[in-house]
Amino acid sequence: MSNEVRIPKVGSHHGTVASYVIGFVLSLIFTLVPYYLLVHKTFGKNALIVTILVFAVLQMAVQMLFFLHLGREKKPRFNLAFLGSTVSIILLIIVGSLWIMSHLYHGMSAMNVTDKVVTDEAIYQVNGVQAGTCPGGTGKNYEVMMMDGRVTPDHIEAHVCDTLIIVNHDSPTRNIIYGSGNNTETYAGQPGPSIPRGQSAAISLTEPGTYTFHDKTLSTMSGAFTVTQK
């Protein structure tokens, strides 16, 4: 065993047991306090966020002072200068990225257009925010058949976020028109679909109420659906 160890001046520290113990105890406190504050929901959300971040920064400072012995090197204090610059750059990167990325999201399109696309296509989430009126996908499917000039069943009772599927088992193409007249009314922003022979169309039932529909050429071929909130 060598006892002639020269004390290397790496990082220039003169730590003592006391400094490490103080650092350790303070760090323990700065870890446990925010933990318990959070678990017991002592403050409101925003206050808690600020609090736990402040404690994190405090603990970092404690560890830098007591474990890393920062600031005790002799001049020029390059280590401290580099740390300060790095922390500034870190803030620039994090704050800059968050600022830019959130603005990019808001600039994606006019919000009403985004809302419409999201609703129509039942998109679950945009930029981490739950969107659309039908979370977790759609609900039940209700099938309605168009055959031999009749709609079977001619009335459907469904809930918001269910899907109405109209199947055309008839020979000609069936053009669905909402309402009773020949005006192009819409349901949930969309006009009625045109369904070729043997095909089907799916309608997301996102708006509550009772609606009728009929075929464009054969107005007696009609049906209705009632959509209620869950």
């Binding site: 994090i94 990225s97 989430q125 930029n127 981490g128 977790g136």
Partner: peptide
Amino acid sequence: AVLRNNTFG
């Protein structure tokens, strides 16, 4: 920070 909430359901 940017992607933490993009859980895609």
